[in-house]
Computed example of a mutant assay.
Amino acid sequence: MDMHNRMDHLLALRTFVRIAEAGNFTRAADQLGLPRSTVSKIIQDLEEHLGTRLIHRTTRRITVTPEGAQYHERALRLLAELEDMDAEARRTRAMPKGRLRVDVGSSIANLILIPALPGFQAAYPDIELRLGVSDRPADMVGEGIDCVIRGGELAETSLIARKLCELDFITCAHRDYIARHGLPAHPRELAQDHRLLGYFSSLSGRTIPLRFERDGERIEIGADGGTAVNESTAHVTALLAGLGVAQSFRFALQRHLDSGELVQVLPEWSQPAHPLYVMYPPNRNLNAKARVFVDWAVKVFAEVDTRRI
């Protein structure tokens, strides 16, 4: 037995305590649900590991040595502390409490996450949620953030990422803009005859191009030259102001499309799906508050997952 293996060492401690209290190997083995030969071998290996004898063996009964008595006393304290720790962890898992810091993009927060939060609050009333709403990349360590919800292709990262959903992008413009400039017949017309409303990265400053796919053909149209913003809610506001043709999340635009205020452009061309992830550091993998939030978020975002709609 490798005594550096924590689970084996823990089993050895529990086995020794059972033997010391039961007074013989057979009774201890029955209580532990182990073969007598296994119990005997565990104690033998433990004594070899410690370099000292813990018990005296006789044909009828075992007795604890002075070294064994001292070891037994400390083992009892250690096992009791472990049981308290496990009990506390179970209580924490059942009803997590304390502050939880989550960072999320603007339109996702305003239109999906926050409207669903009353359900989370009712289920976990003792969690003090701090919701950071911004499209800017967050400094998780520096800001003490437990988890972030972010979209797009994942960069190389040490964070654990769990996919929440895929979101549809659509291309559209305000009806007044369409009345002035007309509907384009092909994506390339956007670069020649239209004003584009761009979205630029807060991290790199790069304006994200408009992307189109149809029958295996893929086209990218640069969105530089017109107005651009770096926040998703403001991007929709600018679109509603008639500042140009833009691509954004369908969920953020749908009610404006339904009202006729926005008009879909080039509907026969599709846009690549936008994956959304919840991410957290590996060292916070067992954080009970973050765990229940992630499990709840998975259910919330399943409702807007284009793969299931």
Rank of each mutant, 00 (worst) to 15 (best):
E73K: 14
M279I: 05
P281M: 07
S158H: 00
V229W: 04
D86N: 14
E81V: 15
L239W: 03
E156M: 06
S232W: 03
T38N: 05
R195A: 15
R60Y: 12
T15K: 01
L197P: 06
L239Q: 09
A234K: 03
D193A: 15
L276P: 03
I309E: 14
E48W: 03
A122W: 13
E48L: 03
F16K: 02
R77F: 03
S37I: 00
A109M: 08
Y71V: 05
R74F: 00
F301G: 06
H274Y: 13
A94V: 07
P118W: 07
P137R: 09
V102A: 12
Q271T: 13
A109D: 05
G226R: 00
F251Q: 09
M140W: 08
K163S: 07
P115G: 04
H9V: 11
A288C: 11
L13W: 12
A273I: 04
M85V: 15
R150L: 06
R74Y: 01
R195N: 15
D193R: 15
P66Y: 11
V278H: 15
Q264L: 00
Y177P: 02
T92E: 15
E268A: 06
L129G: 06
E88F: 12
A302H: 11
P209G: 12
M140F: 07
P115L: 02
I170W: 00
S259L: 01
R150Q: 11
A155M: 08
R91S: 12
Y277V: 01
L154C: 08
V104M: 08
E88V: 11
G23R: 01
L262Q: 09
E156T: 14
K299F: 13
V292M: 01
A22G: 05
A123M: 12
L111Q: 10
A28S: 02
A28I: 02
L117T: 10
R53C: 09
